[in-house]
Design a binder for these strands. Structure first.
Length: 148
DNA sequence: TAGGCCATCTGGTCCT
DNA sequence: AGGACCAGATGGCCTA
C-alpha cells in the first residue's frame, strides 16, 4: 500500500485558487471552502480510480485462470496474459473451424451412404470418426502461443 | 544494482 | 458538474 500524498502541482493549483476573481486574495472562508472541496473531489476521484483499477485487476485474474499457463509457477504479467489470451482464442477458433469442416464432411458422407452405398458405409464412417478425434486432441494439447 | 512489474496519484478529455 | 477512462509520473518491491 502506497502512502497517501498530495503532490506539489496540486498544492500549486490550490494556491492559485485562493487568488481569484478580484485580483486580491479571497476571504479566508471562501478560499478554505474552495480548497476543501477541491481536495475532497480529488480524494474521491482517487478512490474511484483505485476501485476501477482493482476491478481491472480482478478481470485480469479471471482471465489468468482460463488461459493456459504451461506449467509456469510464476504468475503471468498483464501483458503476457493478454498475449496468451489472444493466441489461445485464435487457436480455439482454428480448432472450431476445422471441427465444422470435418462435421460437414461427415454429414455429406452419411447422406451419400444412406442414399447410394449403404453396404459400404459402416466401415468407412467408423474409421472416419476414430481418425478425427485424434487430430483435435493433438492440436489442443500441443497448442503453443503465437508471438505478436 | 538495474530492470521489470505494479499500485497509486494526477490532470486531461469525453460523456451523461 | 461529476463520473469514467486514459496516459504519464513516481516510487516500492522483487529478481537476476
Amino acid at each position: 500500500m502506497k502512502p497517501c500524498k498530495l503532490n506539489s502541482s496540486m498544492d500549486a493549483s490550490l494556491e492559485t485558487d485562493l487568488q481569484c476573481r478580484n485580483g486580491t486574495v479571497c476571504a479566508a472562508k471562501c478560499g478554505s471552502e474552495r480548497v476543501e472541496s477541491t481536495a475532497k473531489r480529488r480524494l474521491a476521484a482517487n478512490a474511484r480510480e483505485r476501485r476501477r483499477m482493482q476491478g481491472l485487476n480482478t478481470a485480469f485474474d479471471r482471465l489468468r485462470k482460463v488461459v493456459p499457463q504451461w506449467g509456469q509457477d510464476k504468475k503471468l504479467s498483464k501483458y503476457e496474459t493478454l498475449q496468451m489470451a489472444l493466441s489461445y482464442i485464435m487457436a480455439l477458433t482454428r480448432i472450431l473451424a476445422e471441427a465444422e469442416r470435418y462435421s460437414a464432411e461427415k454429414g455429406w458422407i452419411n447422406f451419400h451412404c444412406e442414399h447410394f452405398h449403404q453396404e459400404s458405409c459402416h466401415a468407412y464412417t467408423g474409421q472416419k470418426v476414430a481418425a478425427e478425434t485424434d487430430p483435435y486432441a493433438q492440436r489442443l494439447f500441443s497448442f503453443q502461443p503465437d508471438h505478436y
